[in-house]
Design a protein around this nucleic acid. Structure first.
Lengths: 250, 250
DNA sequence: GCGGCCTCTTCCGTTGAGCGGAAGGCAACC
DNA sequence: GGTTGCCTTCCGCTCAACGGAAGAGGCCGC
């Protein structure tokens, strides 16, 4: 039977194939892709073949598909990811060298924090963040900063939705989160002690854009046994440095 | 008139739209995209709309399109880019901290070196490389390493093609390049003094994969006034560290 | 060694998603 | 007000896309 029964476009289908990959499944067979997308095997075969020919996907000798370099090459032109990272890297490196802890740079995408950069020292506390990965706004340092300076609609939507509990310390009460966000705006920093992981404390600050909005958040993550105070000046300075590099008038 | 006169598929067209963006043109109007792809305005409008809806493209209030975060998020799952970078980062950071010079990690893609990571110090010599960017194999340190260990077909193809001259020092003679590659294999390092830029000297070493092949190259780039010798041990050690992290048996 | 199962590839008749020119709205400029 | 250029919407036409069927090949259990 010709043409998509659901009326779905070819472009949409091709993109859904790409979106099937995840941090947990970085390599998939043709059958995997068909099952996960719900597309007929023949259709998947044709679409996957086109994506592989162009370089969006790569197929190895065992028939496993992975996201291809060509896609990454194009995606690396995204101003809000690699572009932002390029501007921020000197300051992230400075902060890393001064502390040898985990350093993060994240942007808000919808109702989540999307990590565009992460530098972790060998001996830094283990954290779950991943470049290209997403984490919730309410339970991370960078997330709290991004949420505090987001439009009110975004804040209301996040607080209206379920606030997932990750540890005993996670803030899951909307009124409490509202107070926390007010404090973030007052101090222009966010401290997140064990909200996402029991053993990790995060100190974050906003990165301002040229239009006076907050375009990213920068943070350091240390063991929860550490006091946050000593890290505040360095994190704030790094964030301000990135802001200036982006053309913000502080 | 229905359907592509050239018989080109929808997927191919959509990918070509994405491929229109470049380091020189990170933001384009709808008309730009139509002109650059050669597609009719209506067709471009439809395809671009779909890409934007999904997040592969982002449109600002002025009607300028950019590569979207969603595409980068998917592309960040590419093992040969961000995956490789994750494994390599501790060693790249070590090399950077020890020298505060430019540190590169690149892979071979076709007949070019594609840069998956770059860490540059504030005072490091200025270099033209860019994360997500490509540079020629014969005129860069990482490129010489990647070429030296590539299949013979790749080597022959590169040497059969024009070897573009960038500086007076660029190796453009196939016999000379062949000798240089033999030297790279003998010493397991590549030294590239002023081949691409007059004022930059590069020292590179191979990164081995678990299958005993060279999967990437790592390098440091310093001012041409520096002697390469003192950097060799650190570059080699960093490359071996990355190799082990990738499961190579050295 | 053989049958069963699964993956992947190729074929091909059918048809509606995709095609793009035309028309028009809108904004900027003179 | 007229001109220019960009973007959006419409819509008649048609072939690229559709996916079931058939088959090749590999793996595994008996």
């Amino acid at each position: 039977m010709p043409h998509s029964p659901s009326g779905e476009t070819v472009t949409s289908r091709a993109l859904r194939v790409l979106a099937t990959f995840s941090a947990q499944r970085r390599e998939l067979t043709l059958s995997d892709l068909a099952r996960l997308t719900g597309l007929p095997l023949t259709t998947t075969h044709r679409l996957v073949g086109e994506l592989a020919t162009w370089g969006a996907l790569e197929r190895d000798e065992q028939g496993l598909y992975r996201i291809g370099l060509r896609l990454w090459e194009i995606a690396a032109l995204a101003p809000r990811s690699v572009g932002l990272r390029e501007a921020a890297l000197p300051f992230l490196e400075d902060l890393y060298e001064a502390t040898h802890e985990n350093v993060h740079l994240a942007v808000r995408d919808g109702d989540e924090a999307l990590y565009v950069e992460r530098i972790s020292g060998r001996h830094a506390v283990s954290v779950v963040s991943r470049v290209g990965g997403r984490l919730p706004l309410h339970a991370t340092g960078v997330g709290l900063v991004l949420l505090a300076y987001a439009d009110v609609e975004v804040q209301e939507r996040v607080m209206a939705g379920p606030l997932r509990r990750f540890t005993d310390r996670t803030v899951t009460s909307p009124p409490e989160l509202r107070r926390l966000l007010a404090e973030v705006r007052r101090t222009r920093t966010a401290i997140s002690p064990g909200y996402l992981e029991n053993n990790a404390l995060s100190v974050a600050a906003p990165v301002w854009g040229p239009a006076g909005d907050v375009v990213a958040a920068l943070s350091i993550v240390v063991p929860i046994s550490r006091a946050p105070g000593p890290f505040l000046p360095a994190v704030t300075a790094a964030a301000r440095g990135v802001s200036r590099a982006l053309g913000a008038r502080l």
